[in-house]
């Protein structure tokens, strides 16, 4: 086998979309600046040239309109991929994405599915302030009828996005502006990654670190630091929060007896609180301490660099949580 190449996260996303568009004419991309501008974050660079304006469609700044349009098209049997420049902007499209997409199959008694993928940047970018830094998984993971993928690296981004596009149900695909330039190994040959399969990305014996998306990298940093203190961390990348692969986490916690959940969304009623609750339930007799959680601070996202850094989950906070969970304070 040839040496595995490295590509950027944004290139992985583009490859996933382009491959699926070559494979299936029902797939098309729409969103703000996706075509002539080549993508606000250059994710769709070159796609207009390859697929033409009928399949790579610039929309006006009109999230409620084009999100709803995509859902109508999906009900007709097409497979739209909708790019939100930021998931923060999806809030003005709350009705179509939360009332229509996840409920159409149910309230039509199985008659109309909604195979649409909504994707875009999620979480703090870098000094974007309070309204542009949403971690929408905190809100949206509460809603049944949607799948939510939050990949942490280019390999997962490509494999999960291809699965999302090929699927038959609505998917919220949460990327991160801060990771778009990250490079990672992505094979030339085609692959798919199933939803609901977590990956153990570092083996350890003393404490389980469970996370998804960008904070996975902070977990790895913290695990390195902890190793120096002789605390062995197992790091799990959940990859999707709906479905949530609780089994992989439970198997790990039964081994380590300690667990830290790291979630960039706010703590109150979040995927992190759900995961912690499930671990408590399934590992009640295995835990030596309560499940610790590291979230963004429970305040609007601040602008100042120092405040924003302290607001977000980071390796230091995770390390402190690990030491507390394992009684190494």
């Amino acid at each position: 086998m040839s040496a595995v190449r490295e590509i950027e996260y944004r290139d992985a996303l583009r490859e996933a979309m382009s491959e699926e568009m070559r494979r299936d004419k029902r797939v098309f991309l729409l969103g703000e600046e996706v075509a002539e501008y080549n993508g606000a974050y250059k994710i769709s660079r070159g796609m207009l040239e390859e697929f033409g304006a009928r399949r790579v469609i610039d929309t006006p700044i009109s999230e409620s309109g084009f999100a709803g349009l995509a859902i109508g098209a999906a009900m007709m049997g097409l497979k739209p991929v909708v790019e939100f420049m930021s998931w923060s902007f999806s809030l003005v499209a709350a009705d179509p994405i939360l009332n229509n997409a996840p409920k159409m199959l149910y309230m039509s008694g199985g008659q109309f599915g909604c195979p649409v993928v909504f994707r875009g940047n999620d979480g703090a970018g870098g000094q974007l302030g309070s309204t542009h830094s949403w971690c929408v998984e905190g809100l949206f993971s509460n809603v049944p009828g949607i799948k939510i993928a939050i990949p942490s690296n280019p390999y997962d981004a490509k494999g999960l996005l291809k699965t999302a596009i090929r699927g038959s149900d609505p998917v919220f695909f949460l990327e991160s502006e801060r990771m778009l330039g990250n490079k990672g190994e992505v094979p030339e040959e085609e692959y798919l990654i199933p939803f609901g399969q977590a990956k153990v990305i570092r083996s350890g014996t003393d404490c389980t670190l469970a996370s998804w998306g960008r904070p996975v990298h902070f977990c790895m940093e913290a695990a390195e630091e902890m190793q120096k203190l002789g605390i062995s961390c197992e790091v799990i990348d959940l990859r999707t929060v709906r479905p949530l692969d609780i089994g992989t986490v439970v198997r790990s916690v039964k081994k380590t007896g300690a667990c830290v959940v790291v979630d960039q969304s706010w703590s109150f009623g979040s995927p992190g609180s759900e995961l912690a609750s499930q671990v408590h339930r399934h590992c009640f007799d295995d835990l030596d301490n309560y499940v610790h959680r590291v979230h963004s601070a429970d305040v609007p996202t601040p602008y100042a660099t120092n405040l924003e850094q302290e607001y977000l989950p980071n390796a230091r906070k995770i390390a402190e949580a690990v030491r507390s969970a394992t009684y190494n304070l």
């Binding site: 084009f66 999100a67 349009l69 995509a70 859902i71 109508g72 009900m75 007709m76 179509p96």
Partner: peptide, 11 residues
Amino acid sequence: TPLGAGLAFGC
């Protein structure tokens, strides 16, 4: 109303 646009777009 956006769904109606989407149905027609889809057709």
